[in-house]
């Protein structure tokens, strides 16, 4: 009897464990939707047309991973048909971009601060999600003198631009992959006049054919202003002289552009050998002549 009870307990316990193991995934099939996290960023370069970037992530196995193919609706200030910035779909990196369209020019001018809204309606895989970002209008002015770069950060208050104190500014040189800092200090903070200055210490950096390089002063991921940057071209780089062997005498040029040394050496060898051979052929005729004379 006791044996039967023990057997029943083992069987019941085993079934319970199996259900627990299999049930975790089995019950979740199609029942739960994943949630999305949307992060908005604001960008403005050279005080020109600003754009919004949305980064959408989802949690997979406890880690955030980019969510591609997510359709987002972007709005300026309020969620209404008249303030639509655009509809975008995230790429494989979970990113989507949109410029503020000319149709929102009046809306944009109407305020010194703006709120960007992003919304996702939800689908079979993901829950609906929303995000917003509020930025104040700001700009940077850049000036250079004696290899010193000065940036001034201004914020729009009512109708005037006033300097902003305590903003972190980075100075760099635009390169192909990223911006190269102008010296070893990574960031500079603006003073009470909104100014920050950095010494340029990249003297030998290659520029274009005239030695021009592009300097950049930027505020990155600022809670108040977002990402703003301003560029200036200065002739502080080393002149880049491209080495172009086109139409010059090289081993890989056309036949008329063979290196002189090669022409001289090869012609010398060919002439030396073939003159010898011609003389040897002539020698046959000399032998022939001698034979005819003997006759």
């Amino acid at each position: 009897m006791n044996t039967m009870k023990l057997l029943n307990k083992i069987v019941a316990g085993s079934i319970a464990v199996m259900l627990l193991i299999s049930g975790n995934k089995g019950f979740s099939q199609g029942a739960e939707k994943a949630s999305l996290s949307i992060t908005l960023s604001y960008y403005e370069v050279n005080n020109q047309l600003p754009h919004i970037s949305a980064l959408v992530k989802t949690k997979v196995d406890g880690r955030f991973k980019p969510a591609g193919g997510i359709p987002l609706k972007l709005f300026l200030n309020k969620d209404s048909a008249g303030t639509v910035i655009g509809k975008v779909v995230t790429n494989e990196n979970g990113q989507a971009f949109a410029f503020i369209p000319p149709s929102l020019k009046n809306e944009w001018k109407s305020s010194k601060t703006h709120t960007f809204l992003a919304s996702f309606d939800g689908d079979k895989r993901y829950e609906s999600a929303k995000a917003d970002l509020t930025v104040a209008k700001a700009k940077i002015e850049i000036s250079t003198a004696d290899k010193t770069i000065t940036a001034k950060v201004f914020q729009l208050t009512d109708t005037t631009w006033v300097p902003v104190k305590g903003v972190d500014v980075k100075f760099g040189v635009r390169r192909l992959g990223a911006d190269l800092p102008v010296n070893e200090t990574p960031t500079f903070t603006t003073d009470s006049t909104g100014q920050a200055s950095a010494d340029f210490k990249r003297d030998s950096i290659p520029g274009d054919a005239k030695g021009n390089i592009v300097l950049v002063a930027k505020v990155e991921d600022n809670e108040q202003f977002g990402n703003i940057a301003v560029e200036k071209t200065v002739p502080w780089g080393a002149k880049f002289v491209p080495v172009n062997t086109f139409d010059e005498r090289t081993l890989f040029a056309t036949r008329s552009k063979a290196p002189i040394w090669l022409i001289v050496v090869s012609s010398g060898i060919i002439l030396a050998v073939w003159i010898t051979l011609i003389l040897l052929v002539q020698n046959i005729f000399r032998i022939k002549k001698l034979g005819q004379e003997t006759e």
Partner: peptide, 22 residues
């Protein structure tokens, strides 16, 4: 034309030596 006289022989021998070197 080959008669095998000394002059012909010398010219031929010289030519063969030059060819062997070349």
């Amino acid at each position: 034309f080959w008669k095998g006289d000394h002059k012909q022989y010398l010219l031929s021998k010289k030519a063969i030596n030059v060819l062997c070197i070349a």
